[in-house]
Design a protein around this nucleic acid. Structure first.
Lengths: 349, 349
DNA sequence: TGACAAATTTGGAACGTTCCAATTATTTTG
DNA sequence: CAAAATAATTGGAACGTTCCAAATTTGTCA
């Protein structure tokens, strides 16, 4: 097995030029003569040279490493998997490679992986912070001038850019749609109450209810883990309420799928007997049966935009924090059913 | 913003020792006196020093970089997302960090990301090869002595370790179970016929049928994309057959979910009117309604084992290729229904 | 052809670490 | 207490690249 690395010096020797020249052709500099460039490139191929970015990086400590980090709080959630794919797309085509780490909502883990990434010299970081992340956790990073873009969740007080979706407006639109279909008793299911995202969505729910002059009962808000299993649990509890809801907006699509599962377990037909709206529009939402009405967030697009924002900051050398809230739209499919009162619906059309 | 890096020399100066000593404490060497160690560590904290792995790595080119690469063919498939999580778990706790890239089944993309990873000096690679990957694509990598572990799919002729699941036995067990429940007409749904995995599973299906003395009709094998949407399409076609199947084994869980969706669209109740078995046991399989009977592959565990195997090879310096086929087990849940003939089922118990 | 400009090429000196051999400080021992 | 042994520290010289200033080659023009 080829043991010792081929270096720029080996190339130089074999091609009969100096290492400086080889370095120039590696950087595709216009300074070098075409014929020598060709010769050097040929040797590079022949010897199977592989560029050592570590060494290069050491010298030119300014422009950095061509590595970006992305750390998410739950990779098993397909929302984040798709987000990562979106990020990967744009960083890959910009010649970067991504460190991807999963924190599983552990701040400790998060601290570890971020510091490990720093040691490796990432040029930027895309972060979906674990629950309980403090602004101080990001302090050293931003102080060292490494651009950071927060996605999905914000960290109060951190001076970093963020890209989050319009949780308030999305949930408001969902509730309005259900109310427009004639539902009076609408539950809010799933999610952990100690997150900003939860509260933004909840506020959208509340505001829509009061806009539509519907009463707001606290027991209609049932929190749970933001997962399929959590959705099952939440609908179980909701179905036991005195005033039983006829519709629900869910914290996210995973919860919504769980809610559909739970309904079926009770011999209720989601979309017919009970209206369900999700949030995120993950890829399965359109192919599920019934197809899920949901708030489209386009996680992959979000990943792409986050990556673009980050690359912009990296290239700008030093970009100041900007907070982007990306708009969101209701995608009506089958799971929210038709209007309760058909005549009313006809009159609306 | 702190512009210039703090180096080992700055630490040395501030602590009144030599850079060599600082280096020793960084490596937790037993050679250094406890009091100096404490002093140096204090200074390290105070100055906010961050270790430069690139530089370190340059010097000790033998033991490598503490980076492992993982490239998968479809991160949006939760099977691979979970695999990645499993890998992440073990590499993270071994002090490594992972480059994660998604090839979306493109060999070109795959070649690019692998070579990019090489330039960054990965110490090992876990690869779920894109369709059409050739042994030659891996040649230079293995020639340079970097350990590679293939997962999920094998690459014919490549001298690398592999960890794949027992596709043949898994599918065989699934079919036997259905036959045992009294089904005579069992379809095989989903998957691309030009992959090794497909053919191994198909063979398991065929062998089981002939074991059970059931006829084998080619039209009962309906290929499709290995996705939820593909599953919908496959069951659509299967339901049109003259001899309509009463049960199906599916290429994977995603297909199986799609099949359930498609059945419901036809007012058929999966688990009651039609038996469905998946393959993989992704996390949603147990919470779905009906819970999915499936072949458990434990993607996360597979990721963990792949990572362990890789780390073993990395530490061993040079381990020879071993092919592990990991056993697999049938997990019976609701989607495959009860026995067709209840009396027969009672007699079996 | 000589002088000057432009185009190419080239030796070091970095970059931040580790390692080796060598030095100095501290103990132990006969 | 000197000598030997042990513990702790330390200056360079690497590692593979880029960058700078300087050197060399080539081309142009009068």
């Amino acid at each position: 097995m080829a043991k010792d690395r081929v270096t720029v010096i080996d190339i130089a020797r074999a091609a009969g030029v100096s290492k400086s020249t080889v370095s120039l052709v590696l950087q595709a500099s216009p300074l070098v003569n075409e014929t020598t460039r060709a010769k050097v490139n040929a040797v590079i191929r022949d010897l199977g040279y592989v560029y050592n970015r570590g060494a290069a990086n050491l010298r030119q400590s300014n422009s950095k490493s061509k590595i970006i980090g992305i750390v998410v709080n739950d990779l098993t959630n397909s929302f984040f998997a798709e987000l990562a794919v979106g990020v990967d797309m744009v960083v890959q085509s910009a010649g970067y490679v991504q460190f991807l780490a999963n924190t599983a909502e552990s701040v400790d883990r998060q601290r570890e992986v971020i510091s490990s990434m720093r040691e490796h010299g990432i040029s930027g970081l895309i972060l979906s912070p674990a629950r309980g992340t403090d602004a101080n956790d990001l302090k050293p990073l931003v102080a060292s001038g490494i651009p950071v873009v927060n996605v999905v969740r914000q960290v109060a007080g951190a001076k970093v850019s963020s890209l989050i979706s319009d949780n308030h407006a999305g949930m408001r639109d969902a509730v309005r749609h259900l109310a427009g279909l004639g539902h009076h008793c609408i539950a809010f299911l799933g999610g952990f109450p100690d997150t900003a995202v939860f509260n933004e969505r909840l506020q959208g729910y509340r505001d829509a209810l009061s806009d539509m002059d519907l009463a707001l009962h606290d027991e209609l808000v049932v929190s749970s883990a933001p997962s399929r299993a959590g959705g099952v649990a939440a609908i179980e509890r909701a179905l036991l309420l005195r005033e039983r809801p006829t519709a629900a907006v869910c914290f996210n699509d995973a919860v919504a799928f769980g809610v559909c599962d739970g309904l079926r377990a009770h011999r209720l037909d989601p979309g017919e007997d009970f209206a369900v709206i999700g949030f995120d529009d993950v890829i399965e939402a359109q192919t599920a049966v019934p197809a899920l009405t949901t708030i489209s967030v386009d996680p992959q697009g979000m990943g792409r935009r986050a990556a673009q924002l980050l690359l912009k900051q990296i290239n700008a050398g030093r970009a100041d924090a900007e907070a982007i809230v990306s708009s969101v739209r209701l995608v009506v499919r089958q799971s929210c059913g038709a209007a309760i009162d058909k005549r009313e619906r006809l009159s609306l059309l």
